[in-house]
């Protein structure tokens, strides 16, 4: 019996690791390539172990391509849109969670439905509006767009976290003499801090990886890493090692954010339909 169990566990360990490594392999290969020289990157058969590991690519990407500019844009756009989104969404989620009306349910569903509109449906007018208001290729314009894209998810996630706070807790605070602001500051925020943090992370991830509007509404000034990496698609840009280095830097922080927030990801992506 125990032998059989051990055998089973070994089998699962083997297949489990195999499948996971298979899924991870492209990412591994990218990181691996980023340490090769351009020559090694192209060599056939590929060099697995016996190449001269080099950090050179990372340096070159930084120096030659203004990488810092693009990554700065990514940071500004994703964090900016997230902060702005939270600022607008927190009061809305509070109101709907603690002072629901007959219409709250419908409002929430409507807010979600806006997330389901395909971006191509509004590409043309938005492009024209941006052009006329001189917002094309500006950070402010793109920040607004990314905020609007994530706003439904932010409102929704915050709402579900706020709704889980037991009402008596807030009533206890009221009896303890707290006013509305103190209730929020001393009771609500500390209790839902984890939820607010994961909402924040998820929104940053989505904004960082957004690749429809960032490709269509930017050229260079406001272009984030998605657009920068896309520029490697031109045939002249076929420097795999440098592409890999740039890509690795572009995905590394967000990959770590993702690992931290995978639990909440389920809630955020399915709007509570899967628990």
């Amino acid at each position: 019996m125990t032998n059989n169990k051990n055998y089973q566990k070994t089998l699962f360990t083997f297949t489990g690791w195999f499948v996971s490594l298979l899924l991870f392999f492209p990412i591994f290969w990218m990181i691996h390539t980023s340490f090769k020289t351009e020559l090694d990157a192209f060599s056939m058969p590929p060099s697995f172990f016996f190449f001269d590991a080099t950090l050179e690519n990372y340096g070159i990407v930084q120096e030659r391509s203004n990488y810092f500019h693009f990554s700065m844009n990514s940071v500004i756009l994703s964090f900016g849109s997230t902060f702005l989104g939270l600022l607008i969404a927190i009061p809305a989620a509070l109101a709907m969670a603690f002072r629901p009306s007959k219409r709250t349910r419908g409002t929430l569903l409507w807010i979600l439905s806006t997330k389901m509109m395909p971006p191509v449906g509004v590409l043309v007018p938005l492009y024209l509006i941006f052009r006329d208001f001189k917002l094309l290729d500006t950070r402010i314009g793109l920040t607004l767009v990314l905020m609007m894209i994530n706003l439904p998810i932010i409102v929704w996630m915050l709402y579900t976290y706020f709704k889980e706070v037991p009402h008596p807790l807030l009533e206890a605070a009221r009896l303890d003499g707290a006013n509305l602001w103190q209730e929020i500051r001393h009771v609500l925020v500390p209790i839902t801090f984890g939820g607010i943090a994961s909402t924040f992370l998820l929104s940053v991830i989505f904004a960082w990886n957004e690749a429809f509007w960032t490709l269509n509404l930017t050229a260079s000034d406001a272009a984030p890493l998605t657009a920068f990496i896309a520029s490697y698609s031109s045939p002249e840009g076929l420097f795999w090692a440098k592409l890999s280095a740039a890509s690795t830097m572009a995905v590394a922080p967000i990959l770590m954010f993702g690992w931290f927030s995978q639990r909440q990801l389920v809630q955020g992506m399915t709007f509570g339909a899967v628990k």
Binding site: P166, P168, L169, E171, A172, A173, R174, L175, D176, G177, A178, H186, V187, P190, I191
Partner: peptide
């Protein structure tokens, strides 16, 4: 409520978890 000179014990205690 805070000015009524009362104190209340709730069913689920409503202790601040943090």
């Amino acid at each position: 409520p805070k000015d009524r000179q009362i104190a209340m014990v709730f069913q689920n205690y409503a202790l601040y978890p943090h």
